[in-house]
């Protein structure tokens, strides 16, 4: 077990280092001369060169990368010249609200997708299963923004019971303080995520249902419900844990779009605005953070699976 954890840790560190190389190269390749980017097109070539020299942008690529890595290791993600703020501060300002939106939606999605998938597996090929399969298929085939627009049309424009824009409050806990204003973004994100997970959960549950131990449990005299809750649920959820780890990039992408559509001030909106400003330090700073988050999520998921599955504990 310890060996497994160590090995996963080592590969995670390697992957994170790889990510830092890629973001560095992108930063370097995209913003070209940082001096030009900051001083603007009117600045003279000499001024740009002087700026680059002063900030070390004229050194060899490797030297620059090592400097960048050193910076990262100290927790410094760079500086946004466009907003004249450190990237750290920008991300920190918005992280709480995004974490809250993404977290609440994820928890809701798992709470819906797991029972839904198990139900569909047990009642496979019934009318209910077919209806649900079709619904999840539609949601799965729908870009996030389209679902958002549909919900806005129905609840904001049609029924007029919910605001079409998210709360602009800077409070981290706005979901709980202004639930009405946050319902549509949460619903959108949850809906898309449910579509993603329930299909998977259904097939994972089907796999488990076909296992011999399920039949043995039935032969012991357990009712189907007891078989599901005592035997199947845990084993059918282990693959989902891995899937959640792997789909963090998709969840963050969904979050980005939802924040842009509902104008919810979080990391996604920051990223969207930075795109339009070509503010690469911010873009790559968030990308790096998101990648590290993904690596950590995968690591965590693998560890959770390892801990809850006795078969992996022998190593």
């Amino acid at each position: 077990m310890t060996q497994y954890v160590l090995r996963r840790l080592v590969t995670s560190v390697i992957v994170v280092l790889g990510v830092s190389v890629i973001t560095f190269m992108l930063l370097h390749g995209m913003s070209g001369s940082p001096g030009r980017a900051i001083l603007g097109v009117q600045a003279s070539a000499e001024a740009v060169a002087a700026f680059d020299r002063e900030h070390g942008y004229d050194r060899s690529l490797i030297a620059q990368y090592l400097a960048y890595l050193g910076q990262l290791l100290q927790g410094d993600l760079g500086h946004s010249y466009k907003l004249n703020q450190s990237v750290n501060a920008l991300l920190a300002d918005n992280a709480g609200r995004t974490a809250m939106l993404a977290g609440v939606s994820l928890v809701l999605a798992v709470c819906v997708a797991v029972p839904l998938g198990v139900f569909q597996a047990v009642k496979r090929n019934s009318v209910g299963d077919n209806v649900l399969t079709t619904l999840t298929f539609v949601a799965y085939s729908m870009p996030v923004f389209l679902l958002a627009m549909l919900l806005i049309q129905v609840f904001a424009l049609g029924l007029g019971i919910l605001p079409a824009q998210a709360s602009q409050s800077s409070s981290t806990f706005v979901i709980f303080t202004e639930p009405r204003a946050m319902l549509l973004p949460v619903l959108t994100l949850t809906g898309i995520t449910v579509a993603l997970y329930s299909r998977y959960q259904r097939s994972a549950a089907l796999d488990q249902l076909a296992q011999d131990y399920i039949r043995v449990a039935r032969a012991k005299g357990l009712s189907m419900r007891m078989v599901l809750t005592r035997h199947l649920l845990r084993n059918a959820c282990l693959p989902l844990v891995t899937l959640i780890g792997m789909t963090i990039p998709l969840l963050l992408a969904g979050n980005l779009v939802v924040e842009s559509v509902f104008n919810y001030p979080g990391l996604g909106l920051l990223f969207f605005n930075s795109l339009n400003n070509q503010d690469y330090p911010v873009l790559l700073g968030y990308t790096l953070v998101a990648s590290v988050l993904t690596v950590l999520g995968n690591l965590l998921a693998d560890l959770v699976v390892a801990v809850s599955d006795p078969r992996t504990q022998r190593a």
């Binding site: 390697i14 995209m30 963050l252 873009l283 998101a290 990648s291």
Partner: peptide
């Protein structure tokens, strides 16, 4: 495969959007 792992951990939409600005 480590290279694939690395690239997979960078959110797809993010990197594609950044590339699209170029």
């Amino acid at each position: 495969m480590r290279l694939v792992d690395t690239l997979l951990s960078i959110p797809f939409l993010f990197i594609v959007l950044i590339a699209a600005t170029q």
